[in-house]
Design a protein around this nucleic acid. Sequence first.
DNA 1: TGCCTATACCTTGCGACGCAAGGTACCTTG
DNA 2: CAAGGTACCTTGCGTCGCAAGGTATAGGCA
Lengths: 112, 112
Amino acid sequence: MSDDAALTTALRRGTIEYCVLALLDKRELYGVELVQQLSTGLGMTTSEGTMYPLLSRLRRNGRIATTWREAPAGPPRRYYTLTPDGEAALTHFRTEWVVFRSGVDRILGTEL
Amino acid sequence: MSDDAALTTALRRGTIEYCVLALLDKRELYGVELVQQLSTGLGMTTSEGTMYPLLSRLRRNGRIATTWREAPAGPPRRYYTLTPDGEAALTHFRTEWVVFRSGVDRILGTEL
DNA sequence: TGCCTATACCTTGCGACGCAAGGTACCTTG
DNA sequence: CAAGGTACCTTGCGTCGCAAGGTATAGGCA
């Protein structure tokens, strides 16, 4: 694994989860679609080996709900949506993130 | 452990390391001092159980150097300074961080 | 001298989680 | 009905922040 990949992997810890919630806040998505959107959403490239365990955790914690739907072609897809708990968690995280981001910016001198 | 603490713990992953380098870029510091500065530096509260293994890693990777100095009172202190490799790593991380931060901001809708 | 406290450094064991790799099931196409 | 594509899921590993506990040095004070 390249150093760059390892570096951003460490950064992703703790944020991927909420990026998923934020994407689901716009519209329902299924697993593979989430991986794709995060990859092209910039800087959050990830894999199915990360996504599916993550989605299981979020479901177990009651932050997302899921329904199977037929696909136009290929196997059925499991679509995810935010629960009220998920919305609350996302809202809370946004403020935590802003505080954290500001702290890091101040220490690194990357503010503005 | 409270949920808030767990949340920010996850966020710290991958950034504490470079916050330490950034502090050492200003002036040499010893272990306990680093823990204190990060705590009052906001949002990066951590403990010695995190700091000392981290400092060992950084030393092993050649990013920091160390010298023992007598203290005005109490046991001797191990002061740390940045190596050229450490400076390079810090510079590189600053740009990685800005990219990552922007990506998260865009996804969460917390930009500006 | 002997004890107590403060300071500073370090180690051990645990838990969480992102990831690579591998596996299963469904559907379409030739 | 075989082959390939899509989508879901699991296993095992490595990393790292942390709580808790341990060791050593120095100064204060009886």
